[in-house]
């Protein structure tokens, strides 16, 4: 067992943020925010809902099918519940202590989630009156309201005119999450092996199959693999494709060859690039060997790619079960 497993920082972020198309009803709400107005929808039973939905949440029936179903509410509102955040997180909308709250705008029967910038927790209470503080530059987003503030404290501002009159049809939704991912015990053994230019697999038991990279388990039985076995660095191309687009940052050039390679001593093929030869000459049965990076370490990039060994091709029968 490795005493220390490898850990790597992982950022999950779609570059540029998600682009959301918002449809006619949410679009009308966001357009209202852009214009400095709170837009609600009247449901079939007469209740006024904000943010407006395309449907009645209770019955599922359509809502907001006609212009007449929409109405302006607020701008003042009442806090129906709240929580004081004394230490804001980086993703929170305000960088000083504030309240998250449900705020029911005047004329609405439901409440929206937003923030109240009240200065101190003592200023907060359920039932308190608040008004929106609009940003000067508004884009059609929930954050066009910078915060709600207690009524009569002078913090509110009348919305300045919007800079656009086009309906809001999309919004950008940046999502960035950060992780520290552990490799696990078996993968750590494998990666530490690469740092020594060794390819380590694990055997499922006496006379059993050798898995590389090892996954810690025999996937056929769900039982642990334990015996460590060095495999490769030579092997055979069992099958491959020629890639004509620059998908892989690891590939030396385009076109490149993405192959399944059965390393000598292993019972399972792994994916790798084949290079140092014309892509058109790569074939099933080709004998190859791992090419180590100039600087190796406990990373998958320690093997740059595989190159031909010059040995005679392997017989199809010798690898046909590994396809």
């Amino acid at each position: 067992m490795a005493d220390e497993v490898l850990v790597e920082h992982h950022i999950l972020e779609y570059p540029g943020g998600y682009t959301r198309t918002v449809g006619p009803v949410i679009g009308r709400y966001l357009t209202g925010l852009r214009d400095g107005r709170l837009i609600a929808v009247r449901l079939g039973d007469g209740r006024v809902m904000i943010p407006p939905a395309e449907y009645d949440p209770v019955t599922g029936e359509d809502a907001g099918a006609s212009d007449a179903d929409f109405l302006e509410v607020g701008p003042g509102g009442t806090v129906t519940t709240w929580t004081w955040i004394s230490e804001p997180r980086p993703k929170h909308p305000l960088d000083h202590p504030f309240a998250f709250a449900l705020i029911q705008p005047d004329g609405a029967d439901t409440a929206i989630v937003h923030v109240v910038d009240a200065g101190t927790e003592n200023a907060m209470h359920t039932g308190m009156r608040v008004v929106p503080k609009w940003r000067d530059e508004r884009v059609g987003d929930t954050l066009d309201i910078e915060a709600w503030v207690p009524e009569g404290t002078g913090g509110a501002s009348a919305a300045k005119p919007a800079t656009s009159t086009e309906p809001v049809t999309t919004m950008s939704s940046p999502v960035k999450l950060e992780y520290d991912i552990g490799a696990g015990v078996a993968a750590t053994r494998f990666l530490l092996g690469l740092a020594q230019r060794r390819i380590l697999g694990q055997r499922t038991g006496p006379g059993g199959d050798v898995y590389v990279p090892p996954r810690g388990s025999d996937p056929k039985t769900g039982t642990p693999t334990v015996d460590e076995v060095e495999v490769g660095p030579r092997g055979v191309v069992t099958t491959f494709c020629v890639v004509n687009l620059p998908f892989s940052p690891l590939a030396p050039e385009v076109p490149y060859v993405c192959a399944q390679i059965l390393l000598d001593g292993a019972d399972i093929a792994l994916f790798g690039l084949v290079a140092d030869m014309p892509a058109a000459d790569v074939r099933q049965g080709l004998r190859v060997e791992a090419v180590w990076a100039d600087e190796v370490g406990p990373t998958l990039e320690s093997i740059k790619w595989y190159r031909p060994t010059g040995e005679p091709d392997a017989e199809y029968d010798s690898y046909k079960e590994y396809l």
């Binding site: 991912i181 890639v243 687009l245 998908f247 994916f271 396809l323």
Partner: peptide
């Protein structure tokens, strides 16, 4: 892209195209 996972070096097509070649051969 995920730490410690062998990247699909060529997208979903890169995963399935070698299998297609294996089928054609077989």
């Amino acid at each position: 892209p995920t730490p410690f996972q062998a990247p699909l070096v060529a997208g979903a097509g890169g995963y399935f195209a070698p299998l297609i070649r294996a089928y054609m051969q077989r």
